[in-house]
């Protein structure tokens, strides 16, 4: 089973002190480390497990700058076979449609049985690239997958619905599935694993090679416009406890007791 993986690199914002730039359009990324989008990490693991079980080849694609080759190498170390990077130039500030278009122009030339993407990204979070790509390719798709089974040339996808219920859907191949976190336990990628794929060549494509005009993608081609990025306003109820560690803990315990947090 040949699988195409679409993944992206995002800034790691856990515990970071985020700052928004002057134009209020994006966060300042200078001090942030870049990591693989969490959902995509599960997608890579799922692809590798499907390959281990059913054979085939995994092609991993990202759209980004040179630094984003890190996530491609990571995917190669996990078990992907080849990697393609679409250069970001021209695609800056694309909306999900623009990104999907870039991916579409590469994938339409490739043979595949299944496309896996993360259900959404942690930075922009539209959750649309996967489904838009499927529409462009005119193939069936399923979102929020918590399990993928291959049965008689079809796949059965277990989808996560609300309040801990699941739905199983059957899709003809080729198909596209967007992967939810928790579908599996992604494996650890060791430094040696990454070093071993250091020399593998990553194929590069730019906007011209894909035959996309600059009007179709990027800010110009976007059908939605980002107006402002902001932090949520401080809530009324927020109270920052002051004092020494012991005092803070004491106060916190008192609040929990008062508000009925302890029975």
């Amino acid at each position: 089973m040949d699988i195409i993986l679409c993944i992206k690199q995002v800034p790691d914002v856990t515990e970071a002190d985020l700052k928004i730039d002057r134009e209020e359009k994006s966060i300042i990324r200078d001090d942030l480390e870049m990591v693989i989008n969490e959902w995509d990490n599960y997608a890579v693991e799922e692809a590798v497990r499907l390959k281990e079980k059913h054979g085939g080849k995994i092609t991993v694609i990202t759209l980004g700058d040179e630094e984003s080759e890190d996530v491609l190498r990571r995917a190669l170390a996990m078990g992907a076979d080849q990697a393609i990077r679409i250069d970001e130039e021209g695609f800056e500030n694309s909306d999900p449609r623009g990104i999907a278009l870039g991916l579409y122009h590469i994938i339409k030339e490739l043979d595949f049985d299944l496309i896996l993407t993360g259900a959404q990204s942690s930075d922009i979070g539209w959750g649309q690239v996967g489904v838009r790509l499927a529409e462009m390719l005119n193939i069936p798709y399923a979102t929020l997958a918590m399990g993928i089974e291959v049965v008689d040339g079809k796949i059965i996808v277990k989808r996560e619905l609300e309040s801990n219920t699941f739905e199983k859907v059957e899709l003809d191949l080729p198909a596209l599935v967007t992967v939810q976190t928790g579908i599996n336990e992604p494996r650890y990628v060791s430094i040696m694993g990454i070093r071993r794929v250091r020399k593998l060549k990553i194929e590069e494509k730019d906007i011209d090679e894909l035959g996309i005009s600059e009007d179709e993608v990027g800010e110009k081609g976007s059908i939605i416009e980002s107006i402002r990025l902001m932090f949520p306003p401080e809530g009324e109820g927020a109270e920052i406890l002051q004092g020494s560690l012991d005092e803070i803990c004491e106060k916190l315990a008192q609040i929990i007791r008062e508000k009925g947090g302890l029975y």
Binding site: E33, M78, E185, R187, Y188, V189, S190
Partner: peptide, 22 residues
């Protein structure tokens, strides 16, 4: 097990990834 990656305990994976980045 680290090289294979699939059986490393989840919290250890987090720890090592943090160590690598930070």
């Amino acid at each position: 097990q680290i090289e294979d990656g699939t059986e490393v305990p989840a919290l250890m994976i987090q720890t090592l990834e943090r160590l690598y980045k930070y």
